[in-house]
Write a protein that binds this DNA or RNA. Structure first.
Length: 344
DNA sequence: TCACAGTCAATATC
DNA sequence: GATATTGACTGTGA
């Protein structure tokens, strides 16, 4: 937490909103500990990042400072708006029907509110990181990459093995420079500003590609997804605010943007495969990802990744896939930040 | 009331 | 330690 948090004065009241687990099952506090486990040696780096996770929110204050979008993920329905800019309250993932609603802190008959749990913000996938977050995110990232030397070197290139578009996403990472004008990057080393521009074009293309591959419908789809257009998307990224465009669109678009409802069709199998690949790539334990990004348990994530149901057959479960999809859409840097922040 | 979907938590397995 | 499996629970809709 570092500095970033301070920047945002926002606190999410909402925390409460999402607090309860979707089903309100009586979970015990223990549950929240999930996060804590995840720290394999391999993931040491990640672990460091995620580490804080264990204590959800005692220091909520911190999180409060964070960009709302980030911190609250789960609670806020993830929808946080992700915005690179702090100022723009954008959009959001539509409240996940399930989660968001359920998370509403209304007095549940069930005792299970695990405050801790729910509060944990899981990353909002939607992303929303503001520039400031860069610092935080980056540092950890470096560690992560440590595991993957190759990848690192390849920052310029698609980090991910995924053939389709993830690579592009990764590239986006380079955009970091954009995000944070160098300011705090010192520690982050890795992201060399250099590649960013050169990759801009690539990014745009790749992202577009990715979106398509993941989403069942054609172009129309994209627009539906969170209201983002591949093209606009790109531009913004180049500027370091990739989300801003989308957000704007969402905002303007109509309400829902956020998403949750807008996506018509996501290729769940593809998303599952990509998520699996990304988790492996960065040595991110399922438990961590599930908890922080999806607000779900490790078992649930494992099942979803291994046995993804067709989008058409999903109901409330779509929300979980949307979150995964959203996460994939984020630049690498943001993804990591989300994991980390959520943990904090 | 019942069936189903989604999830959790415990446990087994790798 | 991480992941996969599974039984049980809860919410929703017919």
């Amino acid at each position: 937490m570092e500095n970033i948090g301070n920047l945002h004065g926002v606190s999410h009241s909402q925390t409460g909103d999402l607090m309860s687990s979707p089903h309100g099952r009586p979970s015990s506090a223990s549950h929240r500990n999930l996060v804590s486990h995840g720290r394999p040696a391999m993931v040491s780096s990640m672990a460091s990042i995620l580490e804080g996770a264990g204590e959800y929110r005692a220091d909520h204050a911190l999180s409060g400072h964070l960009h709302p979008a980030m911190t609250m993920s789960c609670e806020s329905g993830m929808s946080l708006s992700s915005t690179y800019t702090t100022l723009t309250p954008l959009q959001h993932l539509p409240p996940i029907s399930t989660v968001s609603e359920k998370f509403h802190h209304h007095p549940h008959p069930h005792p299970h509110h695990h405050p801790a749990h729910q509060r944990l913000a899981t990353g909002n996938v939607s992303g929303s990181f503001t520039l400031m977050r860069d610092d935080r995110g980056l540092a950890p990232m470096g560690n992560l990459y440590g595991h993957y030397p190759k990848d690192m070197s390849g920052m310029g290139q698609p980090l991910s093995p995924l053939s389709n578009g993830l690579g592009s996403l990764h590239n986006t990472q380079q955009t970091l420079s954009a995000y944070g004008p160098g300011a705090h990057l010192s520690n982050d080393k890795m992201l060399s500003p250099g590649g960013f521009e050169s990759h801009a074009a690539m990014l745009s293309r790749s992202e577009e590609h990715l979106a398509r591959s993941l989403v069942g419908h054609g172009p129309g789809m994209m627009s539906n997804l969170n209201g983002m257009h591949p093209h606009s998307h790109l531009h913004s990224q180049a500027n370091g605010s990739m989300l801003s465009d989308r957000e704007r669109q969402n905002v303007g678009g109509g309400g829902q943007g956020g998403g949750s409802g807008q996506v018509e069709d996501i290729n769940t199998k593809e998303v599952a495969q990509r998520i699996t690949a990304e988790l492996k790539r960065y040595s991110i334990p399922q438990a961590i990802f599930a908890q922080r990004i999806l607000c779900r348990s490790q078992g649930t994530l494992s099942d979803l990744l291994r046995n993804p149901k067709p989008w058409s057959k999903l109901k409330s479960g779509r929300e979980t896939f949307r979150r995964m999809w959203k996460w994939l859409q984020e630049p690498e840097f943001q993804r990591m930040s989300a994991l980390r922040l959520a943990g904090e």
